[in-house]
Amino acid sequence: MDFRLTDDQRALRAGVRELLVRRFGRERLRAAVDPPRNGSAGDEGHGVPGVLDRALWRELGEAGFFALRLPEARGGVGLGLPEAVLAFEEAGRALLPGPLVATHLAAGDVPGAATGECVVAAVDGTLVEWLDAADVVRGDVTGAVAMRSVDPLTPLHRVPR
């Protein structure tokens, strides 16, 4: 078995890395974690912890990030799990905030998820990330209560059992 990356996989990884460095580099990460000095954050949530950058989300969608595993016949990129892992590894490297996995998994089922026009959150046990930013939530969030997160970029809610 050959576990080396193919040329296409290396190109995908490099392309995702380049996009994230350009759109969510260290300066943007610092701005997202540190509170804004002048009190104004703008319409897209730049520099406000827990506020999703919708322009970046749409750009990720346009680049095919959420539709990587969706078949081409359904408007996706048509790649496999190994390629999705490479893309998500780069997102983790950049500490990219947002419900990336939930939106990726919903890409074939929720209109707009594949293109980044729709932000999808999902209940995971008794927790849901990014509830306030979500356009669609998969799971019952009745009675959800905001809670403190150890990650300053990931707002959390606890859902009663």
Rank of each mutant, 00 (worst) to 15 (best):
F88P: 09
V136S: 12
R158Q: 14
P99M: 13
P152K: 01
L20E: 01
V85P: 00
E90C: 07
P49V: 01
V145D: 08
F24Y: 13
A121F: 04
L153D: 01
R37L: 13
V137G: 05
R158P: 10
L81Q: 12
V137W: 00
L127H: 10
R13C: 06
R4Y: 06
E27L: 14
D43H: 12
W57A: 00
V51G: 11
V119M: 06
G139Q: 10
G75D: 06
V51T: 09
A84T: 10
G45M: 01
P82A: 02
E27M: 14
E117T: 08
D151H: 14
R10Q: 11
G78R: 04
T142C: 13
D7M: 12
A133P: 09
T142G: 15
V77L: 10
L79K: 01
A84D: 05
G39E: 05
P71Q: 02
R28N: 10
W57Y: 04
A122E: 13
L105A: 15
E90A: 06
L81C: 10
G78H: 06
G45L: 02
V85G: 07
V21N: 13
M147C: 14
T6I: 07
M147D: 15
L156V: 10
R4E: 14
P71Y: 00
E62I: 05
A67G: 04
D132T: 06
H46P: 14
F66N: 03
A84G: 00
R4V: 08
A32V: 10
H157L: 13
D109W: 15
A114F: 07
L127Q: 10
D8S: 14
R30M: 12
A94W: 11
L29H: 15
L56A: 03
R37I: 02
G116F: 04
W130P: 00
A84E: 12
R158N: 06
V119C: 03
R23F: 08
A55N: 09
F3Y: 12
P152I: 02
L79G: 03
E27F: 13
E89G: 11
V128S: 00
T6G: 08
A121D: 00
H157T: 09
